[in-house]
Design a binder for these strands. Structure first.
Lengths: 264, 264
DNA sequence: CAGTGGTCTAGACCACATG
DNA sequence: ATGTGGTCTAGACCACTGG
């Protein structure tokens, strides 16, 4: 009786979802039930039957609605979280992600200019600016000993307030002895470069590789741990070829499309 | 009694694995059990306690060995499959992947030259060469109507016989009216270009985006469905800027590192 | 045929966020 | 205190592969 009431409540509040869930399933041999549920959820969200930003009913209700066990339901929900359409918040609920799920990043521009989004505003948040031991890779590029101090800048990029990209930059101290001061004045890496006499610099190499979000990255980007992500390593050099910036960024794999254009 | 015997057999055959499994777990609050098992499996494989190419014991035995339920065990195994360290074959077993898990692809070279691997031989297998309706994107680039026929070439790249990359290319018929014939003669796209009078051409754009392997892609690449993959779209143009090739490739995300170098 | 991985279930406890 | 998602269990049936 109690379960029936709860189920009815959900159906009354989500008639569209209930209608989707009521459709009979294709034979399991054709497509696993959890993938069929995944498909229906995708339809419902893309058609905005469940509006962006809204909370889904709880997993147990959804499982009841779709006539499967909670584990099967979770499987469908988990794939949508990996793909960025849904986002779970422990103790709160599962939410439909806000707005543009996929946007372009151009390799040959500065980040702020490179985000190609229809509408939406990009903001930046500094997570950490300070000094620490150079990573092995950065030390090699800066031609210093591994473990020598470098300047670290960790930044988070947000689209309409939602985190999309976290970058961890390293700079050689010898080139920018007063980096922190200059950065606080201007709030821009490019301005720091300029104040150090570097007017022109260029991206010499970019690497892309896949991985899975660590617990820390997941917290920063507000995604679930183990969500597939792309790591992008990029190297900037001054006009003489010296490395002035080593950057390692991370974004949810399914949310970004990277464009390498050769313009000549 | 029967279970004990089975478990003992496994331990006798895999003393190293058994030792790993016997270690007590850290508290669940620190790291979920399935991730701890995942860690131990990674150690065992990287240290070659279980040699590449070998079959793991069955899931039920492993679950017994690690003292968890089969579902928990499967979760650890599944993440390793996504990362490319393990590969399950239905009805057969779970195998440790052969050899180099990660290799570099350079964007500014032809594929065959661009694979940077220590040892190992690259081979190519043609899956399909024929004509069909142009994709919307290709039609736009070729300046033809969507649905007009184009030449399709589907190819699979293998490293030491193991599939790593599948590409689906489209070419405009107007430029290469006898593509099939020329390709059968030479077995090389570049040779077809040359026979059409195109000596120089260049990569004008490359796009990278993430996704999950479809059932078909998973079968070709011998990975599990839903494994995260990277899709790479690339466009080649002749000296005058006309598009002569539209390519869409796919590889398992965790097996490839893509390098975009600007050499000047 | 037996053994394998793939799917699914019903039920339980936990940590967490909110009111 | 309640409800949420995250984890884990024991048991079951299926489809596939191989001998």
């Amino acid at each position: 009786m109690a379960e029936l009431l709860a189920g009815d409540l959900v159906k009354a509040e989500n008639p569209e979802l209930a209608a989707l869930a009521a459709r009979p399933y294709a034979p399991r041999s054709a497509r696993p039930i959890w993938l069929q549920i995944y498909d229906r959820l995708a339809d419902a969200i893309r058609q905005e039957l469940v509006p962006p930003g809204s909370r889904l009913p709880g997993e147990v209700y959804l499982a009841d609605l779709f006539g499967v066990s909670r584990i099967t339901m979770r499987r469908a929900l988990a794939l949508h979280q990996n793909e960025g359409l849904l986002q779970a918040r422990k103790g709160v609920g599962i939410f439909v992600r806000q707005r543009p799920r996929r946007f372009l990043i151009r390799n040959d521009m500065q980040f702020a200019e490179s985000l190609l989004v229809d509408g939406g505003s990009i903001s930046s948040k500094n997570l950490w600016l300070g000094r620490g031991r150079a990573s092995a890779e950065a030390a090699d590029l800066f031609e210093i000993e591994p473990g020598e101090p470098v300047i670290f800048l960790h930044r988070l990029r947000q689209l309409d307030g939602a985190p999309i990209y976290v970058s961890r930059k390293e700079f050689p101290i010898s080139r920018f002895p007063d980096f922190e001061e200059r950065y606080h004045e201007s709030g821009s890496v490019r301005a720091v470069f300029r104040s150090a006499g570097i007017e022109n610099y260029r991206r010499s190499e970019t690497r892309v590789l896949g991985g899975f979000a660590s617990k820390e990255e997941a917290e920063i980007l507000e995604i679930s741990p183990q969500t597939p992500v792309q790591y992008v390593t990029s190297i900037n050099r001054d006009a003489s070829g010296k490395v002035i910036e080593f950057n390692r960024g991370c974004w949810p794999m399914a949310s970004v499309e990277l464009v390498f254009a050769i313009n000549d």
